[in-house]
Each structure stands twice: as structure tokens, then as C-alpha cells.
């Protein structure tokens, strides 16, 4: 009797705690998603009632070169951003785990993440300016030709990806570091007894045991990277030409600059489907919900 009563009160408490988050989820995510799905089948400019047009938006998107280009440049961004960020974060995390215990280092690594995205973007925009930026002044000093980091079509997306690597690196490495902390010490001691070197330990012990955390980090960073927006909005605004017109920025332009909310909603639905697919695939491939520790 007592046990069920406690369970009942626990249930009530749980519901109580879940309400605020659920309200947020329904109001800001679930309902907008449903509404967005509906609007994607309409012609809607915000100022007049939506008109149902069936699959017309989707058909137009299929033959919209700017959409396909936006997918391509977004993918380019994701590969560079996630690739560099994960590799560098892993190195940093292992260094923190194996060689240092100081909180100062952990704090410093985290710092860039504490600065707002827009500010980070603007600061780098100035630092990397062709004529007045300190980076190009340094390149010039060493006799290297100046680089239009944000103005060169081939480099702009790489620059934006690297700016965001700089900002997110600390956060990602701390996530991985937390994962490393969860690996029992005795595994490392055993490896040491077996005479394994640092590299061998990393390959055969750290990496396999870190897999669930790594998988989680990858899913989160890939999904996050697909939605790159603010860095582009305050620097290149999609240019030069279409070099940085990532899918999220294109959605924004279609909706808020061209007041084409129906088309933008259809683009958003497509992005959602892609992201859901990517997340599902990653979970499957990386077996994120199992750990080698338990076997």
C-alpha cells in the first residue's frame, strides 16, 4: 500500500515537473511543426490568408537550383565543421584526461562558447577583413598573399565553418572529456600493465569505450550544423554569389525577405525530414544506445 502511494505521488511530482517543458515543447515545437506542415501546402505571404496549392511548392523546390545549391553548401559546411571540430575536440579531451587536472585549462577551453554567436562572427569578420584585418596584415607582413576569407567564393564557407569550430570546440571537448571520465581507471591500468603505448591505448581502449558519447556528440553537432544561420546572417548574407546560402538562411530569406511563407515552410519540412533521417542513420550506425563497457 505504502509503496503504491509513494509511486502515485512520484507520478504526480513527475507530471508537475514535466508540465513547463511540455508547454514549451507544444507551443514552440509541436504546434509550429504541424502548422508549418500545413503551410507548406499553401501559397501564403503572411498578409493574406493562405491558399491551398497542394504539392506545388514541393514541385517548384525540386527544380529550384538555389535549393540544390543550398543543400550542397550546407553539406560542405557540415563536413568541415563537424569533421574538424570532432577531431580537434577529441584531441583536446584526451589531453585534458591524460595530462592535466587543472580547472583553469578546462575553463579557458570553454571560454569561446560563452560568447554570443553573433559577436563571435562579427569579431572574426573584422579580424579577417581584407584591408583592415589583423590576420591579413600578418599574412602581408610575412609576404604571403592576402586572402578574402569571407569574400572569396571558394573560401567563404570554409571560413564560416572554422569560425564556428573555434566557438564550439571547447564545449564539444568538454562533452567528450566527461565521457572519458566515465571510463574506469582500471582499464587504463590494465593496458599499461600489458605495455600498451599512448597511441595504442587511445585506439584500443579510449575510442571504443567513448563510442556512445561520441555518437551523441556527433548526432547533436551534425543536426546543429545543418541549421547554421547566425554566422551567415551577420557576415556574408549568403554571398558571394550563392557560396554561403545555406538551407536555413535560404528558408529565412524566402520567408522574411520575400514573404513567401508557403515555399519557406516546404523547405523547412524538407530540412526536417533530412535531419530526422540523418539522426536515425547515425544512431543505427554508431549504436549510440549500447556501450562496450557492459559486455
Amino acid at each position: 500500500m505504502a509503496v503504491t502511494a509513494r509511486k502515485g505521488s512520484q507520478f504526480r511530482a513527475a507530471v508537475l515537473f514535466l508540465i513547463p517543458a511540455s508547454i514549451g515543447f507544444v507551443v514552440f515545437f509541436a504546434w509550429p511543426a504541424v502548422r508549418g506542415l500545413f503551410l507548406s501546402f499553401t501559397d501564403y505571404n503572411l498578409l493574406r490568408p493562405p491558399v491551398f496549392v497542394g504539392f506545388e511548392n514541393y514541385i517548384k523546390i525540386w527544380s529550384d537550383p538555389v535549393f540544390w545549391n543550398s543543400l550542397r553548401v550546407t553539406l560542405e559546411y557540415v563536413v568541415i565543421n563537424v569533421g574538424v571540430q570532432t577531431a580537434a575536440a577529441l584531441v583536446l579531451a584526451v589531453l585534458m584526461q591524460r595530462f592535466t587536472r587543472t580547472m583553469v585549462v578546462r575553463g579557458v577551453i570553454m571560454l569561446p562558447y560563452l560568447i554570443a554567436n553573433v559577436i563571435v562572427a562579427l569579431v572574426w569578420y573584422w579580424l579577417a577583413d581584407y584591408n583592415l584585418g589583423i590576420i591579413n596584415a600578418a599574412l602581408d607582413f610575412f609576404g604571403i598573399h592576402k586572402i578574402g576569407f569571407f569574400g572569396n567564393q571558394n573560401i567563404a564557407m570554409v571560413t564560416i565553418a572554422m569560425v564556428n569550430v573555434w566557438r564550439h570546440l571547447g564545449y564539444t571537448s568538454l562533452l567528450l572529456f566527461a565521457g572519458l571520465q566515465a571510463i574506469p581507471r582500471d582499464v587504463y591500468e590494465a593496458a599499461e600493465v600489458d605495455g600498451a603505448g599512448e597511441w595504442r591505448v587511445f585506439r584500443s581502449v579510449t575510442l571504443p569505450l567513448l563510442r556512445p558519447v561520441l555518437a551523441f556528440v556527433l548526432v547533436v553537432t551534425v543536426v546543429g550544423s545543418f541549421q547554421v544561420f547566425d554566422t551567415i546572417a551577420v557576415t556574408t548574407k549568403g554571398g558571394p554569389v550563392d557560396a554561403t546560402r545555406a538551407i536555413n538562411y535560404y528558408i529565412y530569406q524566402r520567408a522574411f525577405e520575400r514573404l513567401d511563407f508557403g515555399y519557406a515552410s516546404a523547405l523547412a519540412v524538407i530540412l526536417m525530414i533530412i535531419l530526422a533521417g540523418v539522426a536515425l542513420l547515425q544512431n543505427k550506425l554508431l549504436r549510440a544506445n549500447e556501450s562496450d563497457l557492459e559486455r
Partner: peptide, 14 residues
């Protein structure tokens, strides 16, 4: 990313 959420919220709020 934030702006996109705002966008979606707006669509919903209309």
C-alpha cells in the same frame, strides 16, 4: 538557428 525557431514560432502564432 534561433531565428529559424522564431520563424516557425511566428508561423504558428499567426
Amino acid at each position: 538557428m534561433k531565428k529559424n525557431r522564431v520563424a516557425i514560432a511566428l508561423i504558428a502564432a499567426v
